[in-house]
Simulated assay, not measured.
Amino acid sequence: MGLLYYGGNTVPIEIEDRALAHLKVVIATKLRRHESFTLTWQHPANDPNGRSTIWLHPSIPLRFEFCEPESPQLSAEWIAALANSASTSGGICLLPEDVGGDR
């Protein structure tokens, strides 16, 4: 399970390593362009039902922490789907990897 540390918060957001690796690419690209946006995810099964959203801005510190030492092979299709959602008024919604429905 990967961890995303947001701002000064010491409690990380838990996101599966593979999903976090894909999010990192999209988030880094958007922030490098000085674009602000939201990120929304559903709470894990062991947490109370619901979802959370954070506002991402270039001035807010982020740290990505991965359990696996090696980077996974990235899916260009999943990155494109996440990037497309980032460009909407709803921001990035953590979509499942099978965006094409063929996995």
Rank of each mutant, 00 (worst) to 15 (best):
L3V: 02
L4A: 00
G7T: 03
G8S: 14
N9Q: 11
N9R: 13
N9C: 10
T10D: 14
V11I: 13
V11W: 08
P12G: 06
E14V: 09
D17L: 00
R18P: 02
A19Y: 04
A19G: 04
A19F: 04
A19H: 12
A19Q: 12
L20H: 01
L20W: 02
L20T: 01
A21I: 04
H22I: 01
H22E: 06
H22D: 06
H22C: 03
H22F: 05
L23K: 01
I27V: 15
I27W: 05
A28Q: 12
T29S: 09
T29C: 02
L31T: 02
L31A: 05
R33K: 13
H34A: 13
H34Q: 15
H34M: 13
F37W: 05
L39R: 01
L39M: 05
T40M: 05
Q42T: 15
H43V: 07
A45S: 14
D47T: 15
P48H: 13
P48S: 10
N49V: 11
G50Q: 11
G50I: 09
R51P: 03
S52R: 15
W55T: 09
H57R: 10
P58C: 12
P58N: 14
S59V: 11
S59K: 10
I60M: 05
I60N: 02
L62V: 08
L62T: 10
F64W: 05
E65Y: 11
C67D: 15
E68I: 09
P69W: 09
E70R: 08
S71C: 06
L74Y: 09
S75N: 06
E77K: 06
W78P: 00
I79S: 01
N84Y: 03
S85D: 02
A86G: 02
T88V: 08
T88Q: 09
S89C: 04
S89F: 05
S89V: 11
G90H: 10
I92S: 00
L94H: 08
L94P: 03
L95K: 00
P96A: 05
P96N: 12
P96Q: 05
E97P: 04
D98E: 07
D98R: 03
V99A: 00
V99I: 10
G101F: 06
D102R: 13
R103P: 04
R103K: 13
